[in-house]
Design a protein around this nucleic acid. Structure first.
Lengths: 341, 341
DNA sequence: CTGTTAGCGCCTTCAG
DNA sequence: CTGAAGGCGCTAACAG
């Protein structure tokens, strides 16, 4: 292990026989100052020779800017958090910034402690990401730097937020079913009252309305985001004499339960029943048999968008929209088929 | 947005009417120096009043220690990377350190660029995590700080590494099947030659051997880690007159393919065939029907263990084992049943 | 016990 | 074009 003290700019200056200023200029590629190519070259050679590596802390101290971004998220409990991290991380890396992650355990408040720690590191901006689309309360400390909400929003609307476009997602689901010729289409909802449930249903209903079909409220069953509820609601809907030929599920887990219900009733998918889910839970949706057609919740995209907004803000560029809706595209697989009379 | 310059120790000193040293002492809770409770209190009050927040960069510069740990991983391409991050992140947080993540895209060399960037941030140690258990070549730069390998190892064995105990995992799978009374047990391997394939088969074979059953080489089919290969190998094994009553799959994806093969042949699981997988891919294993009994690959645990090793090293404490094996526990679900003659 | 004094490594006016 | 000098916020000897 190399034990020797890392080379500093001063070392380079000494060896190259120039001043620290000159070294700084060439190492930072400052084009505004003219430095003879010869000097420039020599400095660079010496730097490389000494194995010079810039010291981020020193630079941060001097420039008063760390190049760090903070991300607070429920990393320990939510599998979705990982995707947000991935997207945010990737975008941050592209922008030559590092992402500092701090875990949040509090459903309600996005731990103030996490934010505090991030602020000590002098992050230039903070991303608060929720595992599921909802309203959160933001600790005051978050106001000390630009702050963007991901997959959540504050009641007062004080912070810019990037959230999934649930409504359009719902429309997409409906459209897929309508396009396949279905007319009796049911829906199993998520837990009543949460933004995802409201938005998805709203879009779903709107699309049906506009297509002239309309939504029969009788075909809307309340669920609660679990496979269990999907199974139960599925049985209920499918055991009716005039059962729907297609069902839009509030999420993929519900769809999974519905698959089981259909199986138990001897109904085949998509022959007897077409199904559309929501979330596109990686492995689940792709591995159900038949593969589930579903609307994707682009967590990585939201993370990336959040970082972009943040860097705009930290650069002093004001944000265009206070609320960015991220599109939820349809992932067509094999659970939707034509109506078979 | 609070625009005013953050308070510094000097500010506190001035307001509290003491020297910066004193402030530093009380704020760092240094017990080795005796400071009157009164002074201590006053300083703390002033600090709180001013909304003081320590400046990590300044401290890092002064102490020559950043409190940062680096993690290089294939975050963009591998879903497993997320678990390593989760485990590492959590452990790092517990130890009051931040984790800096840098993406690796190179299968072979764990990008030197990522390491370079991490070193610029003066991370105190680096974790190199691979998406699948294998040998990697480590860039020289990694030697500038303590470095631990996760889910991989270097050929020369120069770096401490934490890897899954594939062999014991293979034994666990065999034991589960043996305990259920199976005697004709087959195996569909991973891609031949990789550590996981070798280790799992070795453990599997050893356990069978020791139990007196032994492994019939005829019942070992070569696969390649995909569901496709699982299906094909599955058909081959199951169409035999003396088909095995149980099969251990090199991983969960293979098991999924095997499920399909069994289904196509009209064989029920676990009635006609017992199956054990490997990896415990979250959603997949838990959601296959019937749920898959499998051996877990504890990525989060490896990440956490890696961080612990790293902090030991950075603290100057030499590492006990150069190679730590992380246990792969059996996750018992519903795909293993008794032999039905 | 507390204050004074140097740096840590880098950036940035300001002169020469 | 290049050098000298000061400061970013904090820690750590070393005196008083």
């Amino acid at each position: 292990m190399a034990r020797k003290r890392p080379a500093t700019m001063a070392d380079i200056a000494q060896v190259a026989g120039v001043s620290r200023t000159t070294v700084s200029f060439v190492l930072n590629d400052r084009t505004d100052v003219m430095i003879p190519a010869a000097t420039r070259d020599r400095v660079q050679k010496v730097a490389a020779g000494l194995g010079y590596r810039r010291n981020a802390a020193a630079r941060a101290l001097a420039t008063q800017s760390s190049g760090l971004l903070g991300l607070v998220t429920e990393i320990v409990t939510s599998p979705f958090a990982a995707d947000v991290i991935r997207g945010a991380q990737q975008r941050a890396w592209e922008q030559e910034r590092f992402l500092l992650i701090a875990p949040s355990e509090d459903e309600h408040a996005m731990d103030a402690l996490a934010i505090e720690k991030l602020l000590e590191q002098r992050v230039e901006g903070i991303l608060l990401a929720a595992a599921w689309h909802r309203a959160i309360s933001v600790p005051d400390a978050a106001k000390d730097v630009p702050c963007v909400l991901v997959n959540c929003y504050d009641e007062k609307g004080e912070f810019p937020a990037v959230v999934p476009d649930e409504v359009t997602g719902g429309r997409r689901a409906a459209a897929a079913l309508i396009d396949a010729g279905h007319e009796r289409i049911g829906h199993i909802t998520l837990t009543p009252g949460i933004p995802a449930q409201i938005g998805r249903l709203e879009g779903f209903r709107a699309e049906l309305q506009e297509s002239g079909l309309g939504l029969d409220d009788d075909l809307v069953c309340l669920g609660d985001a679990t496979a269990e509820s999907g199974y139960l609601a599925g049985r209920e809907l499918l055991e009716r004499a005039d059962r729907p030929t297609a069902i839009f599920c509030g999420n993929d887990r519900i769809a999974m339960g519905l698959y089981d219900a259909a199986k138990d009733l001897g109904l085949s998918i998509p022959g007897d029943l077409s199904v559309v889910g929501f979330d596109d839970q990686e492995i689940l949706a792709a591995y159900l048999r038949p593969k589930l057609t579903t609307v994707a919740l682009p967590f990585a995209g939201m993370g990336a968008a959040g970082v972009s907004m943040l860097t705009s803000l930290t650069a002093g560029r004001p944000i265009q929209d206070a609320r960015v809706l991220i599109d939820c595209p349809l992932r067509t697989r094999s659970s939707v088929g034509p109506v078979i009379p």
